[in-house]
Write a protein that binds this DNA or RNA. Structure first.
Lengths: 109, 109
DNA sequence: AATGTTTATCGTAATATTGCAATATTAAAA
DNA sequence: TTTTAATATTGCAATATTACGATAAACATT
């Protein structure tokens, strides 16, 4: 085993889990916070911002890219990373919807 | 390796990643959606709601409990599971803050 | 007391993730 | 063209996660 049984869940459930998975590592949160902080694309220097080796950072960037959260545009020698605003907004709504679905009418606990 | 280097990141970054990790599986999303849907505590029948074996469900419930998202109160024979509203609200704000930090002033891409 | 019900834990197999050294790739700079 | 710089990929070791059968624990019911 070890493989998630995605087939047995709804598309939506798998989607939410996939976004959460992309955010489920402090290095990836750090990358996103850096991109949010500088409020622009980053051409280089992401590796220097993180306490991890270059291949490891590259791998985390790849996961964020695969999740659609960031995009990387070749900019001459370097690569320019940006948060994809549309995806970011879509994901914001997905989490907002999930978290706001609660209704304070519990009957126990 | 395989072990996340939590020490090298801020508490906040680790916290966000930990919440995301708890949400990073469709079964756990399904459990939470069920708890949200029935709008009450669930004493039993969570296992029947999911396409997974009982020990697997129990394990997922444990992870949600460890993350503080749900709590389980012993109710005679069964155990009554609830979403912890305070933690839920706290997590909602954490994600809201993360997602709303974006600023549409990009200079490239 | 014996049985049934519900949930947890143990043990284990399969798979995934994390991290990095080594190496490859790509393009700018010298 | 050689060198330098930036990023990606490969390969591998360590660890984590997912899943479930078997079993245990706790309590209710008979």
């Amino acid at each position: 085993m070890g493989a998630t049984k995605s087939d047995h869940f709804t598309q939506k459930q798998n989607d939410i889990a996939a976004i959460a998975k992309a955010l489920a590592h402090p290095a990836r949160i750090a990358i996103l916070e850096y991109l949010l902080k500088v409020d622009a694309c980053i051409c280089g220097d992401i590796v220097n911002e993180l306490p991890l080796a270059q291949p490891t950072v590259s791998q985390h960037l790849k996961e964020l890219k695969n999740a659609g959260i960031i995009s990387g545009n070749i900019e001459g020698n370097a690569i320019c990373y940006c948060i994809d605003e549309k995806v970011w907004e879509k994901n914001r709504k997905i989490f907002e919807t999930l978290f706001e679905r609660i209704n304070k009418k519990k009957t126990c606990c």
